[in-house]
């Protein structure tokens, strides 16, 4: 939901601002002609296209944060655990229906296209050939990787800090955290806002990469894939998430490539089957994980705050096991 929101907001902002900055007339941003003019502006003015990209990202993050705050109001007040997933599912579907049926937001059902990467203008300076199209995209992909590393470092910093310990305590034992005078609902709200800001950023980056924003992209299967990534690597574990994301993305790309390969051998094969098969494999992976390995592939590690590394608990202990005996992880989390 937040991912989709970031995408649509980013695209709309980009489409509105590009002509505005370059002085061209702002027409209807859903037209084919406006799409062409977006592309020509992106080709002609390097400074404008990069600055618009930055602004679009900022707006997407802002929108994600605001929506996270709004959604946290009902989501954190429900009584049962699974009502929360119910609320988020409802939120996602609401977003999709509203965007599909409101042409004012992201051009409704048809979506908004002609969003070129911020380095599209580079192709002016390159010799024509296969490189001309590949270099701007490759450069943009590198920027995305850098931003992803940034987000990862940020998440690691959060987790390995006293605040990360607080998060763990809120998750493991709400009552104990409340008894220690921690404002549980405030912490949960904060973390939801941080999460949705990241999702908004990712959505805008994604839209810039694929070039279109349509509400039909943000189907529940996408959220489901992200869940599988999370559980596969081990939730509550940023490194695990990296592993999970890597495996699922490999599955995704691998299924595309193998689909093309298979099609050349079996021309009668229905190409839809590859996509459907991928979703089915994801579902089976999740089920197997839930039954046999609920902690994921990588186990949750302890919180490494500054104090922890200062006293060097882990290294002095002669046993090389990942769980030193003196401080069990649970007590570690709740005593903060």
């Amino acid at each position: 939901m937040f991912f989709g929101l970031g995408g649509v907001v980013g695209a709309t902002v980009a489409a509105d601002l590009l002509p505005l900055f370059s002085g061209a007339a702002v027409g209807n941003i859903c037209d084919i002609s406006s799409r062409l003019s977006r592309e020509s502006i992106a080709l002609a003015y390097p400074a404008i296209s990069v600055s618009v990209w930055v602004i679009a990202l900022a707006f997407a993050m802002l929108a994600g944060g605001i929506m996270g705050l709004v959604a946290s109001y009902p989501a954190l007040r429900v009584k049962e655990e699974w009502f929360l997933s119910m609320i988020l599912l409802v939120g996602g579907e609401t977003f999709r229906i509203v965007v599909t049926n409101t042409p004012e937001i992201g051009c409704g059902f048809n979506g908004l296209d002609g969003i070129t990467t911020p380095f599209y203008w580079l192709s002016n300076y390159l010799p024509s050939g296969p490189l001309q199209a590949e270099v701007p995209t490759g450069l943009y992909a590198a920027v995305i990787v850098l931003l992803a590393i940034g987000c990862f470092v940020f998440a690691q910093k959060i987790c390995n800090s006293p605040y990360g310990r607080l998060l763990k305590s809120v998750r493991d034992d709400k009552v104990a955290a409340e008894a220690l005078a921690k404002d549980v609902s405030r912490v949960r709200k904060q973390i939801m806002v941080i999460g949705s800001i990241m999702a908004g950023l990712a959505g805008a980056l994604y839209v810039y990469y694929i070039g279109v924003a349509t509400p039909e992209d943000y189907i529940p299967a996408l959220t489901f894939g992200i869940w599988v990534m999370m559980i596969l690597g081990g939730y509550a574990n940023n490194r695990g998430l990296l592993l999970g994301a890597f495996v699922i993305t490999m599955l995704d790309r691998g299924s595309l490539v193998s689909g093309i390969a298979l099609e050349s051998y079996f021309p009668t094969l229905n190409s839809n089957l590859i996509v459907y098969g991928r979703y089915m494999v994801e579902a089976v992976i999740l089920l197997l994980l839930l039954v046999f390995r609920r902690k994921g592939l990588l186990p949750e590690t302890r919180v490494k705050t500054k104090a922890y590394t200062l006293f060097d608990f882990g290294k002095k202990n002669a046993k090389p096991s990942s769980q030193p005996a003196e401080v069990p992880p649970k007590g570690d989390a709740t005593t903060g």
């Binding site: 299967a221 869940w227 979703y279 089915m280 089920l287």
Partner: peptide
């Protein structure tokens, strides 16, 4: 989560 997985498997 498991019921979501089952649903996705049946649907696809």
């Amino acid at each position: 989560l498991a019921s979501f997985a089952v649903a996705q498997f049946i649907r696809y």
